[in-house]
Design a protein around this nucleic acid. Sequence first.
DNA 1: CGCATTTGACCGGCGC
DNA 2: GCGCCGGTCAAATGCG
Length: 329
Amino acid sequence: MSDEPREIYFHDSFYDDRHSIGGGGAGFPFSSHNPSSLYDHQVPLMSSSGPGFDPPYMSFMECLNGSGDFNALGRAFGLSPPGSSDVFSPSAEGNVKPLVDTGDLGGGGGPVPDTPNSSISSSSSEAGGDDEGGKNKTEQLPKGSEDGGESSNKKGNKPKKKGEKKQREPRFAFMTKSEVDHLEDGYRWRKYGQKAVKNSPYPRSYYRCTTQKCTVKKRVERSFQDPSIVITTYEGQHNHQIPPALRGNAAGMLPPPMLTQAQMAAGATYQHQLFGHQMHALAGGGGHGGPAGGSFYPQAFHQQFHHHQIPDYGLLQDAVPPFILRQQP
DNA sequence: CGCATTTGACCGGCGC
DNA sequence: GCGCCGGTCAAATGCG
């Protein structure tokens, strides 16, 4: 896009998402590839005391419950009002910056100290429909299949194009200090692409949930400003539970499947509060109303932060709240 | 043998 | 209208 390096910005805001977000969700616990190591260092993201947190790890839901009212939180972010969601204003802490506008996520505009690189969310195409629909180019040239009919498939396939742009699923990003790029979150992912990121020496990897019919995707990249930080962006909602095989690990910490948007919003807040400087996640909008049965996707993360502190990064993205894992030693 | 990753190319949107 | 860039596909390859 543009030329200048922008930090993370999201261009889409939450509103888009609202429609899609549903209510329930599967959670995303995180662990890293090496469970042991990660867990060891899991960090207490919460240094603070938030409205109710004491335990070091908890599920998003629990957090919510503990605090009791997400609405409040949501409001803090300005999320609640369905109609209005636009941006969130950071709540009090101020640590997080509104992603939306700014660009500042990271650092603020100009100065962006921190993450200029990542443009996590791109504005472009995006998901287009994410998933298959999006582009579907299906076979590209090799096949040469072009033939007439196909051509439509290649590009024409996409339903959108005309009136509507691609609708994008709610996205949520967060930064994690970790040695591993791909944090284990309990779900199985298949890498389907990797691209060099402009202004960053580190590539961005694209993953898709391997569960059938689940269209959740995630992008993982490192901040070039601080290589120890991994920026993970989730897009979409899981419509299934975490695979049993993985449950042993991460699943233990799985959060209950349903979250409301409000909760999600709250989650963001929590994270915000909890992590304070260490992590920032921005959520966007949260959808408001989605089908109840749907699941939102969760985010969790964990990281090895032992020593470092994350600078004030702002994170971006629209939508979903993060989960904090609960883990027991 | 099956599955996941790698990698090059294409598509489509956006900015200029 | 052109070029840039993000995102995705799919064949090839590697690994368990």
